[in-house]
Nucleic acid binder design. Structure first.
Lengths: 147, 147
DNA sequence: CTGGCTGCAAAGCATTTGCATGACA
DNA sequence: TGTCATGCAAATGCTTTGCAGCCAG
């Protein structure tokens, strides 16, 4: 397929994860990975499903969800809470970590990261004898165009 | 009822909100407010439902959800995402604002607040011409007892 | 009285799961 | 050739809604 030379690094990570779990490489799984990384920052499972469908008309919702779960496991995807009742996903390899500002009117997400906040979070966790695994920081409000 | 002299401030806020919306004061709404403020920090709608049921056996889930929506509107309640698929609520009047550390194993929530982080958040929003309405910061990980 | 409120049951939604068929290794 | 993967449909779990009767004002 035309994608075989793209997203090489991500595909390697994915295949390694599949191998480690004794799972198989399939065209559908490749397609979901490709669709996630081709999409502009944040997508719902439904958007991904519709995207993959263009190249792979018979794919089902279950496969998209199942594959997303695998991608989250091997940290190729991250989940983002948009406070709209469904889970949004983003490709995770582009940037190491970032947080979000989400516009309550238009749903636009602005990404940002702040080393000091990161450091303070780790400090707070340590102070409470808490071992951090991941964290989310989201500012909900109104973006420039909507306010 | 025995509660008529308790939670006076909160009840005033609630009644003002109801009046403003042209809604009525009812025993069920009082009971949900009381149950929320009587509960230890974080509760699901179901827990609240079960709690209210003890004093008010005929209450329905719908009323709990409808009342919670009202309480969130007038900022007597806040929603917290525990990443477990359902919405948790907390009484909002006790403390002005705080964030959470949530244990992925036992679900315990540790509250914290950090003025510097708050200030940095406002700063970041301002830098992006973003008007913040509310924000959440949650650290997921393992608590002292679970790690 | 009147319009809002309640509880029930049914509907909605996003997500997950059971299962028979199909495909990778 | 056996096991894992897929796609469909059904199920699940949380939350919302329609509706007939009920109640506050």
């Amino acid at each position: 397929m035309t994608l075989s030379t793209q997203r090489t690094a991500e595909r390697d990570v994915f295949y390694a994860h599949l191998a480690k779990r004794g799972l198989r490489r399939t065209a559908q799984r490749d397609a979901v990975l490709e669709a996630l990384y081709a999409s502009s920052s944040h997508v719902t499972a439904e958007a991904l499903y519709l995207g993959v469908r263009q190249q792979h008309p018979s794919i089902g919702f279950s496969t998209v969800y199942r594959t997303l779960k695998l991608l989250v496991e091997c940290e190729l995807a991250r989940q983002v809470d948009f406070a709209d009742g469904r889970t949004h996903f983003e490709a995770a390899c582009d940037e190491p970590h970032h947080d979000h500002m989400i516009c309550l009117r238009c749903g636009t997400a602005i990404e940002f990261s702040h080393p000091t906040i990161e450091a303070l979070q780790d400090q707070i966790a340590a102070d409470n004898q808490f071992v951090p695994v991941r964290h989310v920081m989201t500012i909900f409000g109104h973006c420039r165009l909507c306010s």
